[in-house]
Simulated scan of single mutants.
Amino acid sequence: MKRLLLLLALLGVASAAPGQVDVAAELRTAHDLVAQSLREYASGQREAAFKTARAAYLDHFEYAEPPLRVLNPDLILEMEYRFADLRNGMKSGANLSELRAVAGDIDGSLRKAESIVNGTGVLAPTLAATGGFTILFREGLEAALLMAAILAYLASTRNDRLRRGVWWGAGAALAATALTWAAATYLLSIAPISRELISAVTSVIAVVILFYLSFWMLQQGDRKRSAEFMRARVSQAVQSGSLGAVALVTFTTIYREGFETVLFYQALAVASGPVQGYMYLGVALAALALVAVFAALFRLGRRLPTQQLFPALVTVTALFAVAFVGNGVRAFQEAGWLPVTNLYGRVPTLDPNVAALTGLHPTVETLAAQGLMVLVYVIGFAVLRARERRPSRTGAPV
C-alpha cells in the first residue's frame, strides 16, 4: 500500500513539474546542504551559510513538496517553518548549538518523509473549486453586461450591420485572453527569479486590482461614469460606420476583464498547488453558468438582478484580496525578503493546502498583514456607507 501511494505521488509530481523529479534524491540533497550550511556557519561564513540553507529549501526540498504535501500536510508545514527558523537564525547570528538543534529537527523530518501516508482532506478542494468558479463567473458576468450594453446601444441606433463587429471583437478578446494565459504561464516558468518572488509579485498586483474592484463595485456613481465613458466610445465607433472600430472598442472592453482573469488565476493556481484540479473544476462550472447567463441576456432578452449580486461579489472579492495578501507576505518570507516570526505550535494551524488558499499562515507578519487589510476594508466600507447616507445638498427639494 505504501509503495502504491508513493508511486501515485511521484506520478503527480512528474505531471506537475517540468521533467521527472526524484523525490528521494531531492530530500538527500536538501539534507546534505543543511549539513553544509552548518559547517559554513561554524567557520564564520554566515552569508554563504544563509545562501546554502536557502538553496536546500528553495532548490531541492520544494521540488519534493507536492507529493509529500498530499500525503502528510502537517509534517510538511512544520518542515517549512523549521527551514525558515534555520535561515533566520543564520541571518541574525544565532548560537551554533541552537542552529544544530533546528537542523536536527529538519533532518529527522526528512528521514520520515518517505513513509508519509496521509491525504489532503475535503476543505482545500472545496476552496479551490469555489475560487475557480468565482473568479471566472465574476469577470465573465462583467464582460456579459458590457457586451449587452454595447448591443443595446447599437439597437437604439438601429444599426444592425455593426453588431457583427461586437461579436468579432468579443471573439478576438477571448482568443487574446487564452494566449495571454499561455504566455504568462510560459514566461513565469522561465523567469530568472525565484518562484517565491514571482508568487509574491503576482499576489501584490492581484491584491491592488481586487482592492480597487471591491470599492468600485460598491460605488454606483463610478459604475455610471464608466458606462457613460463606454457609451461615448461606442458612439464614436458607430459614427465612423466601421466594423473594425466597433470590434476594437469591444475587444479592449472585454480583454480588460480577460487580463484580470489571467492574473487572478495565476495567483490562485500557485495557492491551489496539489488541489489545482479542483480549481479547474470550478472554472468548468463557471463556464456552464456563464452560458446560461449569456442565453438569458442575448437570447431571451432578460434583465439579470445584478444589483442584488454586487454585495456577494464584493464580499468574495474582499476575501480573495485578504487571502492573496497573506500569500504574498508568505512568498516574500520564503524568498528571504521579509523576516519570519513563527507562531507554529502557539496558534492553531490549518492544513497547508487550506492555508495556501486562505492565506492564513502561522507567522506574525502574514497575520498582521491580513488583519491590516481587513481593517482597511472595514474603514473603507464604513466611509462609503456614511457618504451614501449623507443628504445631497444639490438634490434637496425646493
Rank of each mutant, 00 (worst) to 15 (best):
Ala369Met: 01
Arg100Leu: 06
Glu260Thr: 12
Ala382Met: 13
Ala247Pro: 00
Arg3Met: 10
Ser156Tyr: 03
Ala42Pro: 00
Val291Ile: 14
Leu248Ala: 14
Ala271Tyr: 06
Ala191Trp: 05
Asp74Met: 11
Leu71Ala: 14
Leu77Gln: 14
Thr185Asp: 13
Leu38Val: 08
Glu114Asp: 12
Gln45Asp: 15
Phe229Pro: 03
Ile193Glu: 05
Leu338His: 04
Val208Asn: 06
Gln333Lys: 04
Tyr212Phe: 13
Ala271Leu: 06
Gly140Cys: 09
Tyr255Asp: 01
Ala206Ile: 03
Ala113Gly: 08
Phe133Pro: 01
Arg54Met: 11
Phe229Ser: 13
Ala182Gln: 13
Asp105Phe: 10
Val347Pro: 02
Gly169Phe: 02
Leu71Ser: 00
Arg54Phe: 07
Leu71Gly: 01
Ala356Asp: 11
Ala368Arg: 08
Pro274Met: 03
Met217Tyr: 13
Ala335Leu: 08
Phe324Glu: 06
Val347Gly: 06
Arg87Tyr: 06
Ala368Glu: 11
Val246Ala: 11
Phe61Cys: 00
Val364Met: 05
Val117Thr: 14
Met373Thr: 15
Gly93Val: 04
Thr317Val: 02
Tyr153Asp: 15
Gly171Ile: 06
Ile135Pro: 01
Gly282Asn: 00
Gly165Met: 05
Gly165Leu: 01
Leu136Gln: 07
Leu86Gly: 00
Arg393Met: 15
Gln370His: 05
Arg161His: 08
Gly395Leu: 11
Ala84Pro: 10
